[in-house]
């Protein structure tokens, strides 16, 4: 089960624990570590795995790490391809996983809205959106040949509101970054970027300012924009979400770096 540390992963893990309880889920968690996640995310990840007795696999694209591939130096597309897409493929190949759970939802993005719940990947992890298997009722065809795989999205039909409602009802722990607090930010292209560690390349004379911000979605800190907010409790966050006028993935800078970009990334193996 892919564990990205975000709120959707949190719900998915919670559901899996409930489904198998009193046994632990009979599969490991896999985190694809880009080395650029927020510090608070790493802390949350380790705590959740420990508290739930889950076997946590962490994979980094070591070759790209050695080459120093990063979002500021190599651009977001190349960085995402190397540290996420390629890293994910390496990790899946290394352990020969043939089924992977992911927390993606159809309401997130227009090409995700098209994807099956059991989404077939050919050898090399390619997704061909034009020849998806029919998927009727809840009868899922799970048969594959060696080298092929299936990505399973159990939360496909959940909306962002469903996620928050479930977190609220079940008291699921989330990364504190989802709640507003004073944090150091820099404004770039109209987006608020939080300075999470010393790797931030300041322009001459540029300085972070403290603003009360939170995140609707969490990814790599240089590529995830914050929004100014007073919502510092779960209740307040949900209330703001109900009134939101922008979509959740707007904070994701990589979705729009080229037309149809999510679909292209997904075809190449991105989650």
């Amino acid at each position: 089960m892919l564990y990205s540390i975000g709120k959707d992963s949190g719900c998915m893990l919670h559901l899996a624990r409930k489904a198998f309880w009193p046994a632990p889920p009979p599969f490991p968690l896999l985190h694809i570590d880009t080395r650029w996640k927020f510090k608070a995310m790493y802390a949350h990840r380790d705590k959740i795995a420990r508290e739930n007795g889950m076997n946590l696999l962490i994979h980094v694209n070591e070759e790209a790490r050695r080459e120093g591939v990063g979002p500021f130096t190599h651009g977001s597309s190349y960085y995402t391809d190397q540290m996420k897409t390629q890293a994910l493929k390496q990790a899946l190949d290394a352990d020969g996983f043939d089924v992977v759970f992911g927390g993606a939802r159809r309401d997130e993005e227009k090409s995700r809205a098209k994807e099956r719940i059991f989404s077939f990947r050919s050898q090399g992890h390619h997704w061909d959106p034009k020849t998806q298997r029919p998927e009727l009722w809840n009868q899922y065809n799970t048969r594959i040949h060696a080298g092929e795989s299936i990505r399973v999205f159990p939360l496909s039909n959940w909306t962002e509101l469903d996620i928050w409602q479930y977190i609220y009802d079940e008291q699921i722990p989330i990364v504190p970054l989802y709640l507003a607090a004073e944090r150091p930010v820099v404004e770039r292209n109209g987006q608020l970027i939080m300075v999470d560690d010393e790797r931030f390349p300041f322009a001459p004379g540029e300085r972070p300012t403290m603003r009360k911000i939170r995140f609707r979605t969490l990814g790599c800190w240089p590529l995830t924009a914050a929004l100014e907010s007073e919502a510092d409790t779960l209740e307040a966050v949900i209330t703001e979400t109900l009134l939101a006028k922008t979509s959740e993935r707007q904070g994701r800078l990589i979705d729009t770096d080229q037309p149809g970009s999510m679909e292209k990334k997904k075809q190449e193996g991105y989650f």
Binding site: A113, K114, P129, K130, N157, P259
Partner: peptide
Amino acid sequence: LVVDGLEAEREQGITIDVAYRF
């Protein structure tokens, strides 16, 4: 174009696969 989310759909102006919207 709100629902025809695939590149091939937009280029050809047809729907190829189901879009689920909420």
